[in-house]
Design a protein around this nucleic acid. Structure first.
Length: 954
RNA sequence: GCAGGAAUGGCGGAAUGGUAGACGCUCUUGAUUUAGAAUCAAGCUUUUGAGAGUUCGAAUCUCUCUUCCUGUACCA
């Protein structure tokens, strides 16, 4: 029987599905292991060969862990809310739920496109997913709990004293007892101090308004990133270079009332937690940068004013309080309201013109144009806290309103931007550093800093000076030590249809949460998926979108009476809401209400291995850590970090095929001859090109009309194309579909080849040509178990030879090490070597062929199952125990020593391993080749490392 | 600018400080075959981006430089 991979793979995929082979149990004596992939967004374009790379790697690992005796949870699902489905809905009028379903399950969309479906594509590759735990974020049974987490965040505040989130009731009772003066909470900047009596006297609405400033999700008028083209707000991580990540549309700043998540409360813990998890240094660093911790001081400068009624102070944040005597001016962000209040009448015109000019510049222009220094004097002066000297106050757009206090104390001798600003506007640059020349540029080397001209700080180094400066500032009440974070609270509202609705209705303008027992609040049906004419989000089009507080259900808007029926929130949640906790839902999906029982949470804990792309570094991976920590604080989760170990697979790039056209003609020339002409490269479909980069001219002519009547200049009868490595994309015609590869070579070949391409974490080009090597290996493997023209199965009970055992155990050792190190490419090589060796040894021994199959099973599970069953097993090979490596089979009695002269290997010599150094030296020095290479020189030294090498120096 | 990572044949890539180029692709030759495919056998790649240092010995460790990738940025 030949290797009919199509039949074999279909047979075993069906077997696994029918027998529930990969269903994980929530009760087991085995240790648990949770392997998770970042779940895909099911787009209509389907999978290309780049997508499954991470899934194959995680599947190999999951299968390996099962063989190693672990109870493995390896689930999969879909991040099925999102913009593309909604954009498609706007264009075609199809409900996003319909297109999403087709994209997952396959079918024909209403444009007549045949969609293979993610599930079908994934199934063809033979993954060991436990599909009984599938998650779809757009499923109401799922987003019910996303809504619930939102209400939990609403009903919580962050207590800095206990350093965790607590229920809002503890805050309310604290207020009622003692007001808010002694509360150390993370809250809005504008909270005012009140006493218990004042609190108790407030109306309910006033109390609610105050509590909103403390809740972990809150409504606030914020300046948001508004994308007019998409008609929605975007989070910071959804903007790249000042334009939207999706579509590249311009983004402007706009004030809107929005839900926000107080993620800033967790800034410190999000940094600290990074030290406890096994992620790549680059991703950790990305997160640290994004959170942007800086330690320093907040210093208050009093604005000098004759009018004692209107006294102002300018708070600034600085990381260099040690240089405070070097302050020669201050700069405020032009957007600050304070600017209006302190500007003198003489400067008013200039200041307003400047503010006007800045506000017109887009974020992008401001970023692109960092070299132009601009600013205006406000006319105001502030008092230096120590010297009491007047300090001129300027505004300038190099100071950002969104960071720190939006104001800086400018120390031109110690900061290059301040330096440039001072030079440009002719402001003095006092030097506060000992022995440093600042005539050309600022001096910012903290380590080499010794302070001078600074009163009590003179002669101190950076660290001591900072400490003392803060101490003195605190003493005179002009400042405190402070840690600042760049991380902003995350805007949580989107003006979209295809997202989770908020479980929120409004009574008299104040938000009210809908209780868990009435969730989910399901998305209403609407006619069109666009914002309303008056600019409200798409849900503004829904007629039945009001909450009846007596019936606890969604009712028609006509029934709104302001007494029992109220309007519902029109925004929906962002894409990251559902993906922030999906790994939890996989732990159990058997309960009627969709909750995950505590036993399941405790049993599975966190994800042991998470595999996915690194592009989620500042989005998903930060938000899910935030939600995990929150749920931990509230006692729902035992774990504090969601993903213990993470591997980020590299992108698989396309190898585009280029046909060279002679400029200005319709004549194409074979690649070898292109230098004889002036040509331009035209991308052609890579699937038409063979392993030698040749393409059949007739195929090309039939591909697209432009080639129909083209002329072709061949080279030795062949037409050869050029190659270029680019991102895999339809526009370059370099997309390779995994379904085609499975049909042509089989899933086992695809899996092994993807692993063989190169190190998992590295970006690497796909080239279908190379696949034959892996495919040939699998055919060879098949022949190892069969013989004769009929390819009859031939495993025997003959005892294995020493050689056989050596090959097997060498392979066990290497493969196990490789899998543990995620070095999958080298284990494929190891299989090939083993296959070659056993074929040469003509090994038919069952004692070798059985364990070999188990080793290969994680990589090529279908062929392994087939041969396993032919060996007489009735259970799936996934139940087999991983073979145990035995050192004794590798023990050698002799070693082929490399004999080198001055470090260069010249010849080898087979010597017994039990030879001592002296014995080795004796034999080597007496050898005629040694004499030959040595000539008449006498060696100065002979280095002998037994079992390794001989090096003759001289 | 800052941070993280990388650089090895025609290509993808291997190498606990110890025989550089494993394994595979491509190419060449031979065997088998009517031919092709498949299979088998053999061959091809001259030294690790550049320079210095440590070492008996460096792709590997240290320093300097170059190039490339990824992330991030008037962050005070």
């Amino acid at each position: 029987m030949k290797y009919h991979f199509n039949e074999i793979e279909a047979k075993w995929q069906k077997y696994w599905a029918d027998n529930g082979t990969f269903h994980a149990s929530n009760t087991s004596d085995k240790p648990k292991y949770y392997v998770l992939d970042m779940f895909p967004y099911p787009s209509g374009a389907g999978l290309h060969v780049g997508h499954p790379l991470g899934y194959i790697a995680s599947d190999v690992y999951a299968r390996y862990k099962r063989l190693k005796g672990f109870n493995v949870l390896h689930p999969q699902g879909y991040d099925s809310f999102g913009l593309p489905a909604e954009q498609y809905a706007i264009q075609t009028g199809q409900h996003p739920a319909t297109t999403t379903k087709v994209n997952i399950e396959g079918g024909v969309d209403n444009q007549g496109n045949v969609i293979a479906g993610y599930r079908n594509q994934l199934d063809k590759i033979g993954f060991s997913f436990d599909w009984s735990r599938e998650v779809r974020t757009s499923d109401p049974a799922y987003y019910k709990w996303t809504q619930w987490i939102f209400t939990e965040l609403y009903n919580a505040w962050y207590n800095n004293d206990s350093n965790k989130a607590e229920g809002i009731d503890t805050l309310v009772s604290a207020f009622a007892k003692a007001g808010n003066e002694s509360i150390n909470a993370v809250c809005d900047d504008d909270v005012t101090i009140f006493t218990a009596d004042e609190w108790n006297a407030y109306t309910d609405k006033e109390q609610q308004a105050i509590l909103l400033k403390y809740r972990l999700t809150y409504l606030a008028e914020t300046e948001v990133n508004w994308c007019p083209a998409l008609g929605t707000v975007l989070a910071n991580d959804e903007i790249v270079n000042g334009v939207s990540e999706r579509g590249g549309h311009p983004v402007v700043r706009k004030k809107m009332t929005q839900w926000s998540m107080r993620i800033s409360a967790y800034a410190e813990r999000l940094i600290q937690g990074l030290d406890t998890i096994d992620w790549s240094e680059s991703i950790k660093e990305t997160q640290r940068n994004w959170i942007g911790k800086s330690v320093g001081a907040e210093v208050e400068f009093k604005v000098i004013s004759n009018d004692s009624e209107k006294s102002h102070t300018i708070p600034v944040f600085t990381t260099r309080p040690d240089t405070i005597f070097g302050v020669s001016f201050m700069t405020l962000a032009p957007e600050l309201e304070l600017v209006q209040e302190i500007t003198t009448p003489e400067q008013k015109e200039a200041v307003e013109a400047y503010i006007e000019a800045t506000s017109k510049r887009s974020e992008r222009e401001r970023m692109a144009d960092v070299k132009t220094i601009s600013g205006v004097f406000t006319g105001a002066y502030a008092e230096h806290p120590f010297t009491k000297e007047p300090v001129p106050v300027w505004i300038g757009d190099y100071v950002l309103a969104g960071y720190g206090t939006g104001a800086v104390m400018a120390v031109p001798c110690g900061d290059q931007r301040d330096y440039d600003f001072a030079k440009k506007f002719d402001i003095p640059i006092p030097n506060v550093f000992e022995g440093v020349d600042i005539s050309e540029e600022a001096f910012a080397d903290k380590a080499a800093t010794v302070i001078a001209n600074s009163d009590f700080l003179n002669g101190l180094k950076y660290k001591k000076a900072v400490k003392l400066a803060i101490y003195e500032l605190e003493k005179i009440g002009a400042g405190t030590g402070k840690t600042n974070y760049r991380l902003r609270d995350a805007v949580f509202s989107r003006q979209r249809y295809w997202g989770e609705p908020f479980p929120v209705y409004y009574v008299d303008g104040m938000p009210k949460m809908i209780a868990l027992e009435h969730l989910p609040v399901e998305l209403p049906a609407i006619e069109k998926y666009l914002p309303t004419e008056d600019g409200a989000p798409p849900l503004g089009r829904a007629d039945v979108w009001s909450w009846d507080t007596t019936k606890n259900e969604v009712v028609s808007n006509d029934l709104i009476d302001g007494k029992t029926v109220f309007p519902l929130e029109l925004n929906t949640m962002p894409g990251w809401a559902g993906s922030s906790w999906y790994f939890i839902k996989y732990m159990d999906n058997t309960t009627d209400d969709g909750s995950v029982p505590k036993e399941a949470l405790d049993y599975w804990g966190n994800v042991d291995l998470y595999i996915g792309g690194s592009e989620h570094g500042t989005g998903h991976l930060l938000y899910s850590r935030f939600w995990t920590k929150f749920l931990h604080d509230r006692g729902y989760l035992g774990i504090d970090e969601p993903f213990q170990k993470m591997i980020n697979q590299g992108m698989i790039l396309g190898t585009s095929a280029i046909a060279y056209r002679i400029s200005g003609t319709n004549t194409y020339v074979s690649a070898g001859l292109k230098d004889q002409h002036k040509t331009e490269g035209i991308h052609i479909d890579v699937n038409m090109v063979n392993a030698s980069d040749e393409i059949d001219v007739e195929t090309l002519k039939n591909w697209q009309p432009q080639f129909k009547d083209a002329e072709f200049i061949l080279d030795e009868g062949k037409f050869v194309v050029g190659r270029e490595v680019e991102k895999m994309s339809k526009r370059w015609y370099n997309v390779v579909n995994p379904d085609d590869i499975c049909n042509q070579y089989g899933a086992d070949t695809l899996r092994m080849y993807e692993m063989f391409l190169g190190p998992l974490e590295q970006a690497k080009p796909w080239n279908t040509a190379g696949i034959s090597g892996v495919h040939n290996f699998l055919k060879k493997l098949w022949r190892l178990y069969h013989s004769g023209a009929e390819e009859a199965f031939h495993a025997t009970d003959t005892a294995p030879t020493k050689e056989n055992l050596k090959t097997l155990h060498k392979t066990i050792k290497k493969v196990e090490e490789d899998i543990e190190n995620f070095s999958f490419n080298t284990s494929v090589s190891t299989f090939m070597i083993a296959g070659n060796e056993l074929a040469t040894q003509k090994c038919t021994s069952r004692a070798i062929l059985e364990p070999l199959l188990i080793l290969i099973a994680p990589y090529a599970p279908h062929i392994a199952e087939e041969l396993w069953s032919k060996l007489g097993h009735t259970e799936s090979i996934s139940e087999a125990p991983f073979p145990i490596f035995e050192e004794k089979h590798l023990v050698e009695s002799s070693k082929n020593y490399p004999i080198s002269f001055n470090g260069k290997m010249k010849f080898t010599l087979e010597l017994p391993l039990d030879y001592t150094k002296d014995q080795i030296e004796e034999v080597v020095m007496a050898h005629e080749k040694t004499k030959q290479y040595l000539g008449d020189r006498t060696p100065k030294k002979v280095i002998i490392v037994p079992g390794k090498i001989v090096n003759i120096v001289g």
